[in-house]
Amino acid sequence: MSITQRKNGTYEVSISWYDSLGKRRTKSKRGFKTKPEAVLGEAKLRLEYEEVSVREKVDQQDTFAEYFKNWYIFYKKPKVSKVTLNRYQYTYNVINEYFGNKLLKDITRANYQKFIVKYGQNHSPNTMKMINNCIKACVKNAVYDEEIKKDFTYNIELISNRDNVVQVEYLNVAEIKALLNSTISKLNPRYTSNYMIVTAILTGARLSEIAGLTWNDINFNFNTININKSYDYFAKSFKPTKNKSSNRIIKINNTLCDVLKELRTNNTDLVFKNKRGLIPTSNAVNKALRARLEELNINRRNFHFHSLRHSHVAFLLSQGIDIYPIAQRLGHSDITTTTRTYAYLIEEYKDKNDAIIIAGLDKLSAEKAPTKVPAKSDI
């Protein structure tokens, strides 16, 4: 039995069983106003599916949407982050809206490609890639469990609308300096949001990585930060970093060291936990960030806390830093991820780098070759 309280306060119940082939099946029902009602609803749901003939009928008639939902709840929900879970929920809503009651076994590659074409006309490449990846994993599982014979996502051509791509905003060098100086001038250990903003500017770390820092992770003798975990705001506990390559040790400057030392007065286990025992949420740090930007008359429509990571990269590129050490600092497994994510930034500095290359080549060709001393055999 599973009873889950949803965001709107209502409850959802689900039951599971194994069919004659040993495959796990599930059924759920939502909309219960109280937990006692949910318990009663679960009991009724279980009674409905106690009859073997009813279960077998349901086993053979899973809709695409139902199968996807049951799959991600039982296989993905226990081990993925809240953000990733939201992606599966979003994908389920899309499937349910487009395919409705169409059975999983009746979906063909042609059906799926038509869906991709139709939905992709009004959605960005990233959205389409996300949806397709979620569905591909589910369909692969269905093939493995012999629910369907073929993978209908195989070799599908992704269609998307590039006009829907939201260009990530970042700050130029002057704006980064202004934001950094302004935020530092307003630091107060009682309010740690500003400290997190400064840390993001000077490290390029993700919000969850910053929130998860403990004092043991900071080495003030060697000016380093050890990023080895992140913070789960929903569970209020630590969780692994985004991936293995995200575990890294990065160098920090004296300014950040001095800023972080101020927070020791809070006498807390986590660096950015305030005296009330709270770590600023995403909403809190973004509210503080917007306030700093408004004070500086900096207007960026799509700028948020994660944009500080992009601004950090922009600043490093402006200083002529090579893409490889930038990738290591960001925690990317290889430079492919970095170049793909920040292609638009790299392109902006292409002219500057080309000028440096040409200047170097001009210097090389301008140097006179050493005069050759004729050998005796040449005389």
Rank of each mutant, 00 (worst) to 15 (best):
G9H: 09
V13W: 10
I15D: 03
W17H: 08
L21R: 12
R24V: 02
K27Y: 14
E56Y: 11
N70T: 01
Y75M: 03
T84Y: 07
T84Q: 10
T91Y: 04
Y98V: 05
L103A: 10
L104Y: 02
D106C: 02
A110Q: 12
Y119C: 00
N122W: 05
S124F: 00
I131W: 01
N133W: 02
I135M: 10
K136E: 08
E169D: 15
L171A: 03
N181Q: 13
L187M: 14
N194P: 05
N194K: 15
I201C: 01
I210C: 09
L213H: 04
L213C: 03
L213E: 01
I218T: 11
S230M: 05
Y231V: 07
S245K: 06
S245L: 06
N254A: 15
N254Q: 15
V259H: 08
V271H: 12
N286K: 13
A291I: 13
E294N: 10
F303H: 03
F305M: 09
L308W: 02
L316R: 01
Q319P: 03
D322Q: 08
A327W: 00
R329N: 09
L330T: 01
I335D: 10
T341E: 09
I358F: 01
D362E: 14
A366S: 12
A366H: 01
K368S: 09
K372P: 05
P374A: 14
S377T: 14
